[in-house]
Computed example of a mutant assay.
Amino acid sequence: MSSRREPDVTRVVVLAGGVGGAKFTLGVREALARRGDPEATVVVNTGDDLWLSGVRLQPDIDSIVYALAGVNDTERGWGRSGDSERVNAELQEWGAGWPWFTLGDLDLGTHLARTGWLREGLTVTQVVERLSARWPLGARLLPMTDAEVDTQIVLADGRRMHFQEWWTRHRASLAPARFENPGIDRARPAPGVAEAIADADIVLVAPSNPVVSIGPILAVPGVSEALAATSATIVGVSPIIGGRVVRGMADVCLAAIGVDTAADAVARHYGARADGGLLDGWLLAEEDAALARDVDAAGIPAVVAPLWMRDAHATAAIVDACLAAAGR
Rank of each mutant, 00 (worst) to 15 (best):
V12E: 03
S173I: 06
V14I: 13
G116K: 00
S231L: 03
R273V: 01
Q152M: 14
P191R: 13
I234N: 05
S2A: 10
W100D: 15
I202R: 03
A187L: 04
G242D: 03
A305M: 05
D48V: 11
L279F: 04
S132I: 00
E129P: 08
H313E: 10
V235H: 06
P38M: 08
V220P: 01
A326I: 04
T41M: 06
T261R: 00
S238K: 11
E39M: 12
N209E: 00
R244N: 07
A226Y: 06
A196Y: 01
P59Y: 05
A326R: 06
G77I: 11
E75P: 11
D251V: 04
M144E: 12
V246W: 07
A67Y: 02
D49T: 12
E286I: 00
R76V: 15
R159D: 00
V259P: 14
W308Y: 14
R119I: 08
N45M: 09
R35G: 03
G299R: 03
A298R: 02
E85S: 11
S81R: 01
G79F: 01
D62I: 15
S231N: 10
T10K: 14
N45G: 00
A297H: 04
L174Y: 07
L112W: 00
V259M: 02
R29C: 04
D311N: 12
R310Y: 09
G158H: 10
Q58P: 02
E39C: 14
A232Q: 03
G243C: 02
W135K: 01
E287S: 10
A312R: 12
I214V: 06
L122S: 02
R119E: 12
R76Q: 12
G281S: 11
T10Y: 07
A314E: 03
